[in-house]
Write a protein that binds this DNA or RNA. Structure first.
Lengths: 340, 340
DNA sequence: GCGCATCGTCGATACGCATCGACAATCCAA
DNA sequence: TTGGATTGTCGATGCGTATCGACGATGCGC
């Protein structure tokens, strides 16, 4: 592997000049720069990451703490990871994975070894064991999700409360007088993930504001169970029912359960679910969706950590950034009056 | 951050002794080692990764090339990634992500910068643009998936051919005289992913061997379409039908389609699908599954690359390692004779 | 035409660890 | 008792880059 010294020799300059060509931290004449760049290209030079990290005290690597997820919707996690990795590259950072089975000490390790310059913590829960750890770390972190105590922390998440409110307001505006909230799966609810609470709060507040009744249906993991739950909820409704299903893993179950019960979406029922546009559009009835914008959340998280790392004066600045959800009207909602 | 020099000073030894305590590459007296270890603990010393990489010329990091996946089953990809990262840690390696949007040059970059000591390439397709690149890389790679030309490469994958055969043999042994093969989604088939071919080959060979008829049903992405496809396939069958659905993303669609058509699994139809045990067991009828053992594939891939990195004499050794699938009999299959 | 600031480059050094050669101390066999 | 092997430790050096101080060259205002 060629080194910067080899490049320097070939270009007839000193090694430090090569370094300055790369970093741009000192002016270099056009002519010299061209020569150096030609030499680099000729040798296919790539700077050695270890040496660079040692000398500059920055690794250009961001640690990504990924959740341990038996029952979480794995597809969406994967989406976060890809987007985070791709976005990081655009700012010349790489992503190193930190899994949960090392425990919170995994974070201390990668930081202690100076493997990473900063951290992105995914799927932060209300009372997350990783939070006290990162508070004592000498590098910046950005959390995806919002812990109970988030003073002094940088958190990013979808605005679940607003999402809940948006769903309710949309349905209320159409003329529905009650909504059935199809909840997250028990395993998620039991974990006290706080976005569940936030979504509920948004729903409840908005419902109270517009005088709309909220019926809770538990999240289920099979179609049969979902049918049962839906049927039960329907007993408490009259007129055309309106459903809100914020958990992505529930979306297909709800849609199918309603179909099996003989309800045509957009005619006999209004439904707002959370799923990707691609999925929403290839349904029998294209679905009106509330999107939590995971890509946007991921991108913002990366931008934040990059800024922290690039511009040290920007830290420490507590900040809670909520990404506005997007409601996309398709064909699965209807004005109840229109149907007799 | 404390350095090994600080540790040495505190322990009253030289820095090189500290290094030898860590690596064990020279004998150190019990007494000295204890002192050094105490000093390390007291200072919470962690060796600097950059310095270590620079001096030792190995980063203890493995690059993981993850697929770009709009229509692939994202959940299973996530499973691979977690297991790979966790397994790597057990051998003291970390995982650095390499996404596809840098293209194959991303691989050249991380290797060129000596960020990684080796590579694991996920989701390798028959004719994969990354393959020619890694052939010219000066570090070992392990592929998950099998490209057309795999001479001199280390590949690991589930034994899809055997899986196909196992499904057919199981159903034949139960007494079925034909099977309906519910295919992967068009988008996957069109990509010429070669595990699809391998599975088909296994099915066809085994079917020929036992004189069993194979009916192909295309993979679909909605329940409605799946019902249609299944209905059409059923027209070519008589007696109790048997289904094989190797694509994880199809599993719930098939099950629901059959349910909607009024077929009770394990009574009116036999079904073998590919999905996780957890999912298989919480169905109306617990499903008989053919499992491709993604965890095992992941672990083997890590072990292989680690061995390549640890024991240089082991390379280069072409090797194609096929992981035996696991058929788990549950309640969704039935001897056709038993029902009238 | 002079002094001074700016530009462009170089040499030297530091970063923290691994490793090699050297060497003192200890042990065992002859 | 001596020679050689073995054990345990140290000092010195190198890994490849970033950065600082220095310095000659150039441009500018007066």
């Amino acid at each position: 592997m060629p080194t910067s010294k080899d490049v320097a020799r070939l270009a007839g300059v000193s090694q430090s000049t090569v370094s300055y060509v790369m970093s741009g931290r000192r002016p270099i004449s056009e002519k010299t720069r061209k020569r150096v760049e030609a030499a680099m290209a000729q040798l296919a030079f790539q700077p050695n990451a270890g040496a660079r990290a040692l000398a500059s005290r920055r690794s250009q690597v961001i640690g990504l703490a990924i959740p341990f997820v038996p029952d979480l919707h794995m597809g969406s996690i994967m989406e976060f990871i890809s987007v985070i990795a791709a976005t990081a590259r655009q700012s010349d950072y790489d992503i190193l994975l930190v899994t949960d089975d090392e425990g919170p000490q995994g974070l201390e390790r990668v930081v202690g070894q100076q493997l990473v310059d900063g951290l992105i913590i995914m799927q932060v829960e209300g009372d997350d064991a990783r939070v006290p750890v990162i508070r004592n770390l000498p590098v910046p972190s950005v959390l995806i999700g919002i812990p109970e105590k988030h003073d002094g922390l940088e958190c990013i998440d979808a605005d679940f409360e607003l999402a809940g409110a948006m769903c309710v307001e949309e349905l209320a505006q159409l003329g529905h007088e009650s909504v059935i909230l199809v909840d997250w799966q028990d395993s998620v609810v039991r974990r006290h993930v706080n976005y569940v609470k936030r979504f509920h709060r948004g729903v409840d507040k908005a419902a109270a504001a517009v005088g709309l009744k909220v019926i809770h249906a538990p999240g289920r993991t099979t179609i049969a169970a979902m049918e049962k739950a839906v049927t039960k909820a329907l007993e408490q409704t009259n007129g055309i029912p309106a459903f809100i299903a914020p958990e992505a893993a529930n979306q297909d179950l709800l849609v199918e359960a309603l179909h099996n019960l003989g309800l045509v979406l957009g005619e006999d029922a209004s439904v707002v679910v959370n799923c990707s546009d691609r999925i929403a559009e290839r349904q029998r009835t294209p679905l009106t969706t509330i999107g939590f914008e995971p890509d946007e959340v991921s991108r913002r998280a990366v931008h934040r950590i990059v800024r922290d790392l690039t511009d040290p004066t920007s830290r420490p600045h507590e900040a809670l950034e909520l990404i506005r959800p997007v409601l996309k009207r398709r064909k699965s909602t209807i004005r109840p009056r229109n149907k007799r």
